[in-house]
Design a protein around this nucleic acid. Sequence first.
DNA 1: GAAGATACGGAACGCGCGCCCCGGTTGTCA
DNA 2: TGACAACCGGGGCGCGCGTTCCGTATCTTC
Lengths: 182, 182
Amino acid sequence: MRADARRNRERVLKAAEEMFAEQGIAVPLDEIARRAGVGAGTVYRHFPTKEALFEAVIAGRVEALLADTDRLLADEDPGTAFFHFFDHKVRQASLNKALSDALEASRGVRYGSPRTHESFWRLVDDLLAGAQRAGAVRPDLDRDDVRALMVGCIRAVDQVTDPAKVDHLIQVMTDGMRVKHV
Amino acid sequence: MRADARRNRERVLKAAEEMFAEQGIAVPLDEIARRAGVGAGTVYRHFPTKEALFEAVIAGRVEALLADTDRLLADEDPGTAFFHFFDHKVRQASLNKALSDALEASRGVRYGSPRTHESFWRLVDDLLAGAQRAGAVRPDLDRDDVRALMVGCIRAVDQVTDPAKVDHLIQVMTDGMRVKHV
DNA sequence: GAAGATACGGAACGCGCGCCCCGGTTGTCA
DNA sequence: TGACAACCGGGGCGCGCGTTCCGTATCTTC
């Protein structure tokens, strides 16, 4: 692979990451190319289709989340770990339209690359099971419920701008997932 | 107004209601025209723009909801009334992509016609205030929070198909809005 | 430093959709 | 029933965007 080709590939990925984050998958490919300082043709030489580029970006972001999370979870009890993860994911997605678009579309389709998809959902399963065993999360929730609630929470948070409101909404939504001590 | 013009106007509205419900605002206008059995020009003679047609449809649906709700609320305590309304609205919107699109976009813009917009949000205010006075809904929620949570709940419900799951998700989300008796 | 392979840019194409226009048709009223 | 106004259909325009193509520039290798 020629040196300039590799350099351009990097530039395209970086520009795509930024623009997808700001505007979601709806951003025109020409703008990504322009931001990267290359022509549209160059983008297509490195990624066969716009969706492939999007998927590559998502895979990178999910890997970053997984790395963060591993670090985050070492020393927390299962309940806190689960809710930290949920909170973290919602905030990440609300700052990054690419991630919310991808998660919303992820019913039935891959979330990033096959590897990140697998890792991500296994992590959700593990966190959920732990939190449920610890009595922190209601036992009648499964992975799909958590996915749906994540999407819902992200979309709710999208509706407000005030950071205090964001905290508040996440609080309300996660409260519904806790077991009730009446 | 000529008789055939009025008839066509009705047909267009009916077709638009059906197609917007099924596919949201994204449905091409030509398809609405085809379903109505008229040409695209005819649609534009009755509604100056696609958005105006959409708004007219939404206004109709919101009026229907308001009528339903008035009947529903006469004999219920304020807490039940609020949660019935929330549940009803979420289910209505999840069956009708037009309504969820409109509600999601309603931050800062009209929800249907000026009149339905006003009536709808006044109803939300009244129900919310009543339920909070009765101690059924946490006092730190306002109209905007409720709007955001409605949108979130609708999007969460969109993610599943099983009706039992739908009930379950609405349950979880509304639980978070109740006051906690610990 | 020349030749060949590789990569580049951006013009061009196809497509879908909102919206406009005009030749023909249909309803209305005397 | 005739004449005029109102209305109709659908072809066409403009635009945005994903994708492709090809003449040109750049890198690599000997």
